[in-house]
Design a protein around this nucleic acid. Structure first.
Lengths: 246, 246
DNA sequence: TGCCTGACCAATGAACTATTGGTTAGGCTA
DNA sequence: TAGCCTAACCAATAGTTCATTGGTCAGGCA
C-alpha cells in the first residue's frame, strides 16, 4: 500500500462515520482521511486551515494529530511548503559554498589525494582516443600559458578531462563538486612573484606521465602518477600557502 | 565618463600584439579600462550597453573584444547576470535529481567501488573510539532489523558512519552526494521475496570485517574489505536487479 | 562587405504578494 | 482550574511581476 499511513493500531473507522464524528477523533479522522484518499508518497495534503474544516476539527486538535503522525514518520511538514505523506526526502541540493565553509585547504587536498587517483585509474580503463587527445590539448595549452591565471585554467580543464574520460556521469559530478569546493577554498591563492609557470614546472612532466599511463591503459600507473603529482602539489600547498597554484 | 579613459597607449598593449595589428581600438580600449580600474576578481563590470557608451565604441565591437577576453579566460559572462572579471566560478548548487537522471545503477555501483574503499582507508587512519562504536551500533541495528526497509536504513547509516569517521567535511559531503544519487537511482528496488535479511546475509560478516580493520587502523585491509563487500553487492545488483538491497 | 542601429529573445534577479506551518494571547466552557 | 477554541501574528516558502542583461537577428548604410 503505497504511500500509506500506518493506522493498523487504531480502530478501523472506515464505514463507521458515526464513530468518526464522535469523541477525541482528530487523529482517527485524519487517519481515515488519509486511508480514504490512498495518497502516493510525497503527496501534499491540504493546508492545515482547510484540512481542519474538512475534518470538522479545530486546528489545534488537527496539529496534535499531525504531530503524532510526523513523529511516527508517516508524514513530514515544512513551513511555507506544506504537509506531505511519506518520509522526509534527503536534502535535494548541495551547496558548494556551504561545504566550503565547513572545510579547509588541508582537507581539500586530502580528498583530492583519495579521489583523483581513482578517477585516473578509471580513466585509464575507459578513455578513448578523443579523451587522450583532449588531455594532450590541455597539457599543450598549459605549456603555452602566459600567465598563472591561464595556466590554472588549463590545469583545471586537464583534471576535469580525466574525470570526463571515466565516461561515468556520477564520477564527473562528484569531481565537479570536489573541484568547485577546491576553487572556492583556495580562491585567490595565485602566486604573484613570477609572471608565469617556468618551463620546468613539475606539473608538465607529471601531467605528461599521467596522459601516457591513460593512453597505455595502465590503470595502476595512472593512479600512482596522479597520486605522486598531487603529493607534490600538497607539499607546495603546505609549505608555501601563498603559492598554492600547481 | 568616456574622456577619463586613457587610450594614448593604443600601440602599447602588453601581452597581445595581435590586438595592435587589428588597429580598431575596442579591445585596446577595454583593456585600458580594466587596467585603470584594477578590479578585484569576480567584480561585475558595467552592462554592455553602458560600457560601449563609456568606451565610445559600438556594441558589436565591444562584444567582439569581450569575446576575446572571455576566450582568454580574463572575464566571464552570463545572460541576466552580467560580465565579471576572473574565471567563471563553478556551478554553485548541485542537484541530486539532475545527476540521477544522467546516470544508472551500473555507474553508481562503479563509483561506489572507486570511492568507498578509499573512504574506508581514510577512516582507518582517522577514526576514534566513538566512530568505531557508532559503526558497531549500526551493525548491531542491522542484525536486529525486522524488515528490509529497516535493514536498508541501518546499512545507510553504516556507510555514512564510515564517511564520518574520516573527519573530513568534504569527503563526508561527497559521500552524501554519492549516497543521495544511489538512493534516487535504486529507489524502490527493495526485495519482497523474503521479509527480512537472513541471519547469514553476507553483509553482516562484511561489515564486521570492515569495522575490525578500521579499529585496528589497518588502512589497506579496510579498503580491501570494503571493495570486496561492494563487489558482492555489485554482483547481486547485476544478477538480480530486483533484489538490489545489500 | 562590413559595420551600426534598433529591436527582440531568454535567462536572471529584485521586489512584492500570497500561502503555509508554527506560535502566542485572550477568552470561553466544562 | 484545565483544556480547548479562535484569532492574530511570525517566519519560511513559493509564485508573480517587472526591470536588467548578455545573446541574436534584420534592416539600413557607407
Amino acid at each position: 500500500m503505497a504511500g500509506a499511513v500506518d493506522f493498523e493500531d487504531e480502530r478501523d473507522v472506515r464505514g463507521d462515520p458515526a464513530a468518526v464524528a464522535e469523541g477525541d477523533g482528530a487523529l482517527t479522522q485524519l487517519k481515515a482521511y488519509l486511508a480514504q484518499h490512498e495518497l502516493a508518497p510525497n503527496t501534499r495534503l491540504p493546508p492545515e486551515r482547510e484540512l481542519c474544516e474538512i475534518l470538522g476539527v479545530s486546528r489545534g486538535e488537527l496539529r496534535k494529530a499531525l504531530a503524532v503522525l510526523e513523529e511516527h514518520g508517516d508524514i513530514w511538514r515544512h513551513v511555507g511548503k506544506g504537509t506531505f505523506t511519506g518520509a522526509r526526502p534527503a536534502e535535494e541540493r548541495i551547496s558548494i559554498a556551504e561545504i566550503s565553509s565547513q572545510t579547509n585547504p588541508a582537507e581539500v587536498m586530502r580528498a583530492r589525494l583519495l579521489i583523483e587517483p581513482e578517477l585516473a585509474r578509471e580513466a585509464a580503463l575507459n578513455a578513448n582516443a578523443d579523451d587522450v587527445a583532449a588531455l594532450s590539448a590541455c597539457l599543450a595549452g598549459s605549456r603555452t600559458s602566459e600567465t598563472w591565471r591561464q595556466y590554472e585554467n588549463w590545469d583545471n580543464r586537464f583534471h576535469r578531462a580525466i574525470a570526463s574520460a571515466t565516461h561515468n556521469a556520477l564520477l564527473i559530478a562528484l569531481f565537479d563538486t570536489l573541484n568547485g569546493v577546491r576553487r572556492a577554498v583556495v580562491w585567490g591563492r595565485l602566486r604573484y612573484d613570477i609572471q608565469k609557470p617556468p618551463p620546468d614546472h613539475h606539473s608538465f612532466a607529471d601531467h605528461e606521465a599521467i596522459i601516457a599511463a591513460i593512453a597505455e591503459r595502465d590503470m595502476n600507473a595512472a593512479a600512482t602518477r596522479m597520486r605522486a603529482h598531487l603529493q607534490i602539489v600538497q607539499a607546495r600547498l603546505l609549505d608555501r600557502p601563498r603559492e598554492a597554484a600547481e
